[in-house]
């Protein structure tokens, strides 16, 4: 019942994750952060089994950081996404696979080229211009199909994101009170507010 959204714009990726921590039928927390910074310009967003997702994402986070320290330059978005895929694909064939769905948003610090990757618990990796993870797929994909343009600026992307969130508020049975919005661009990752 979690929702992750991502929109790749001209030189940034705008992402949103719901802030609700759910156990069974209980809302445990309303300011839960479902993202991890892999490095200065790559953000990993996760949904899925509570323990699995945090454990897996922190494992990925630390290995990506270790790789950056070893080599002296940070891993690119594509490299980080493929590293994550290999780890998840190996775990899929183990006795206890991680059940975690991911979005990976990143922006090249030198060229400013934004990238957004979608990956499910089976470790199918796909680069997409806009992506939704979870039940939100059934509500937001059509909205994004209609209004998305590859050359969007931040204000236009924010407006589209608002449309998607609004669609969820109107049609989805769960009312997410809060979302965490973040922008990934060449200057780094920062949290923003959507009025």
């Amino acid at each position: 019942m979690e929702v992750l959204l991502g929109i790749q714009g001209k030189d940034f990726v705008l992402v949103a994750s719901d802030a609700l921590a759910i156990t069974s039928i209980v809302a445990m927390k309303r300011n839960h952060n479902k993202t991890r910074k892999l490095n200065d310009n790559v953000l990993l967003m996760f949904s899925g089994e509570g323990g699995d997702s945090v454990q897996f994402c922190e494992f990925i986070q630390r290995n990506v950081q270790l790789n950056g320290i070893r080599r002296g330059y940070p891993l690119s978005t594509k490299a980080a996404a493929n590293f994550t895929r290999v780890e998840l694909a190996e775990s899929l064939r183990s006795r206890h696979p991680y059940q975690v769905n991911l979005l990976i948003a990143g922006c090249d610090p030198d060229t400013g080229v934004p990238e957004l990757y979608w990956m499910d618990y089976l470790a199918s990796l796909k680069k997409l211009p806009f992506a939704v993870q979870g039940y939100g797929q059934y509500f937001c994909n059509s909205t994004m199909d209609r209004y998305y343009r590859p050359d969007m600026n931040l204000e236009e992307a924010k407006a589209l994101m608002k449309k998607c969130i609004n669609e969820l508020k109107v049609r989805f049975i769960i009312n997410f009170s809060d979302f965490v919005f973040q922008v990934v661009d060449k200057d780094g990752i920062k949290e923003i507010k959507l009025e």
Partner: peptide, 8 residues
């Protein structure tokens, strides 16, 4: 077939 296995 299954996309993850196609990639792997």
């Amino acid at each position: 077939g299954l996309a993850t296995d196609v990639q792997t």
